[in-house]
Design a protein around this nucleic acid. Sequence first.
DNA 1: ATTAAACATGTAAATGTTGACATGTTATAT
DNA 2: ATATAACATGTCAACATTTACATGTTTAAT
Lengths: 187, 187
Amino acid sequence: MRVLKYAILGLLNRKPMTGYDLSKEFSYQIGNFWSANHSQIYPELKRLLDEKLVVYNIEISGDVLEKKVYTITEKGRKEFLKWLNKDEPMEPTPKNVFRLRMYFSNNLDIETRIRLLEHQLVQHEEKLAFLLSEMQRYSGVPPFDSDDFGDYLVLDGAIMREKTTIEWLKKCIKICQSKTNCDEERN
Amino acid sequence: MRVLKYAILGLLNRKPMTGYDLSKEFSYQIGNFWSANHSQIYPELKRLLDEKLVVYNIEISGDVLEKKVYTITEKGRKEFLKWLNKDEPMEPTPKNVFRLRMYFSNNLDIETRIRLLEHQLVQHEEKLAFLLSEMQRYSGVPPFDSDDFGDYLVLDGAIMREKTTIEWLKKCIKICQSKTNCDEERN
DNA sequence: ATTAAACATGTAAATGTTGACATGTTATAT
DNA sequence: ATATAACATGTCAACATTTACATGTTTAAT
């Protein structure tokens, strides 16, 4: 599939960047649905260079530090657009360790279930708050041909996803609590 | 992390099974958040056997076919429960190729964007219909200590997730259509 | 009887991903 | 001046995952 290849080409299609810059990009918006460490990025850049999909220029930072600023080639742009236009079938649902735990949660104390759920909840609430703060910079749908367009759509999707996860976690907590309440009433 | 290890232990903790049975399990409910091919399952079972977390009995099917029916050991159950009780931090958001495409969608014709979005939409609607049919078998929250409890919670979560994805896709389509309408009015 | 689908168990190669190892520079704050 | 954080680029080993290779049996339909 080589998805990282296309993620990098797509980012370089926006503007020339170093491997380090690409690495940082994956901690921003794009990180909500794709990411890679620098240990994966540098070898991939080398490969893209071999395939003549990118080229680089050396820029000197300070006195001696050589930065490799990568630029997408015409061939690279063509391959990227070919990939982008492809209509591929839905991927299998993503793996999720927490949901796996909940799948087996009948083997846990009710109190433990609630504790685990509540820990997830605070984390997802923090994540949502962060995403909402990111959304602040948009007053409406950005121009259809601007880089911000996709950024806006997927940010919106990420917010919806977090909200639903939070709703689900709260529902699960409520269900577990209804059990503890029942038990207390019996005593 | 060895998540597959715990997924298998968890399933064997429910009831003894063959590698083939485990493989099939991943196409059922648990497949909504974890899966593995038989090529990963058989070696993992061998490893769990070495670690004395499982044992197997041979059952003859028909005349000669030897089935290895795996059972979890006390040691295996202990390790599984230890893992299950662990409170781990939220995982990074899952990778999603379609959202990556949408992130770069400013490079696509509006018509192509709509076509790709609508193709995803029908697939997610089918998936939702399937999940809802699965939910039919529950008339309420199953007993808190039954295997069905976790099954119910995650099925509910999967349904909520699909509904949100569908809502997002429709929103994206609407946004793209508002652009084509605008353009038509100008002509 | 025959055939096709489902049952059943494995290995091997390639690919994708993470975490650790390894090194050095530049800018900022104290 | 000096220490620290951020900048910058790479490799390597281990682990996880997918796809293809490889083989054979049993059950159900025709």
